[in-house]
């Protein structure tokens, strides 16, 4: 791809989760029940690059694999197939010190700070432990270092001896961010990091993310189901559906003129701050079970434009315009499907 020097590059990354047969099922198979292992392709052949300093938003419905992909990027999950590269080097091939350096450079901020912060440790330990263990600061300097980081994320350093439960939700989110920042990362993977917050607090945390991006030159992979949030902070947006990226475009273009019918439907459903009685017109049905994804294009059973080919052929993610990619057979027609122009949630008929 033309992107110069991506900091993160995913190449044909897949993640399968397999539920092996239990004893009873194995016995049943001896009698010819013909049961097979259940396999979920949470991430299915995804290729994505993230440039240095870029904010990439990853959106999709529950169960589309966006969190799994985020975890693969953060190095928490190993991909079943494919390569994850950090600054051009495959993570799987790195060993020892180099791998650790790469792992530290990519940090994750989770959705629920109460589940990701140890309730029995003080904030100073939560934030300060990793940098000390990894030799980034000397133990004697930990306290001062933690104070500095806390001040950066808008926490009062005087509260560093407290436990997580003594903080509000918004402050806990900041602790989670401070912990990630403490090891001087280059990339932050944020998995629904503002989803549990009140709007006024969410606005504060989003602003903090933007400030930190400039201060530290951070790169973000922002995983969220909230399209408003993603639209606000992302440079590029990747839309996932059942393990696959169906559209990847610069944020302003994807929101102005979505190409993939799924993106279009998804955007139409976003409630907007418009004081107008809206007819909520619904995308029919729900996301199918990833255990038995539909054949061909996964979206075809819900797609209003589906035709025969969609049921058999898997559409590839193809370039449709400079910097824009979409996986839809409609783009292969004699005339490429023009992106529908959207003005404030209303489709303008051509």
């Amino acid at each position: 791809m033309a992107m110069p020097d991506p900091i993160i590059a995913l190449e044909n990354v897949s993640k399968r989760f397999v539920k092996p047969l239990d004893a009873a099922e194995k016995i049943a198979n001896l009698f010819g029940a013909g049961l097979s292992e259940q396999v979920v392709r949470a991430v299915d052949n995804v290729t994505l690059t993230i440039a240095e300093g870029e904010v990439v938003g990853l959106v999709g419905e529950s169960g589309c694999g966006k969190s799994t992909l985020g975890r693969i990027v953060a190095g928490i999950l190993e991909p079943s197939a494919g390569t994850v590269r950090f600054r051009g080097r495959a993570l799987a091939e790195l060993s020892g010190k180099e791998r650790r350096a790469a792992d530290l450079a990519i940090q994750m901020v989770f959705q629920d700070p109460m589940a990701s912060l140890n309730p029995r440790r003080r904030v100073v330990e939560i934030i300060g432990e990793a940098p000390v263990v990894h030799g980034l600061v000397r133990p004697a300097e930990m306290d001062a270092y933690v104070c500095e980081i806390m001040a950066r994320v808008g926490l009062d350093p005087a509260t560093r001896r407290r436990y997580p439960h003594q903080f509000s939700g918004g402050q806990r989110a900041r602790i989670g961010i401070a912990r990630a920042l403490a090891v001087k990362p280059k990339v932050l993977v944020c998995d629904e990091s503002t989803a549990a917050l009140d709007v006024s607090i969410q606005a504060q945390v989003l602003n903090l993310f933007m400030t930190l991006r400039q201060e530290f030159g951070l790169t973000y992979l922002f995983v969220s189901h909230d399209l408003g949030v993603v639209e606000h902070i992302s440079d590029r947006v990747a839309v996932m559906y059942l393990g696959r990226i169906v559209e990847l475009s610069p944020a302003d273009e994807i929101f102005r003129a979505p190409n993939h019918p799924y993106t279009e439907a998804l955007l139409a459903e976003v409630p907007r701050l418009e004081p107008r009685k809206k007819r909520f017109s619904a995308l029919k049905g729900e996301i199918p079970s990833p255990l038995h994804p539909p054949s061909g294009c996964h979206f075809h059973p819900r797609c209003p434009f589906a035709f025969d080919r969609c049921k058999v052929d898997r559409p590839a993610l193809k370039k449709i315009a400079p910097g824009r990619f979409s996986a839809c057979h409609l783009n292969d027609g004699p005339e490429p499907r023009p992106g529908k122009a959207f003005s404030d949630g209303e489709a303008v008929a051509a």
Partner: peptide, 8 residues
């Protein structure tokens, strides 16, 4: 709920 389900 997801936006699509919310809208429905």
């Amino acid at each position: 709920l997801d936006v699509t389900i919310q809208a429905q």
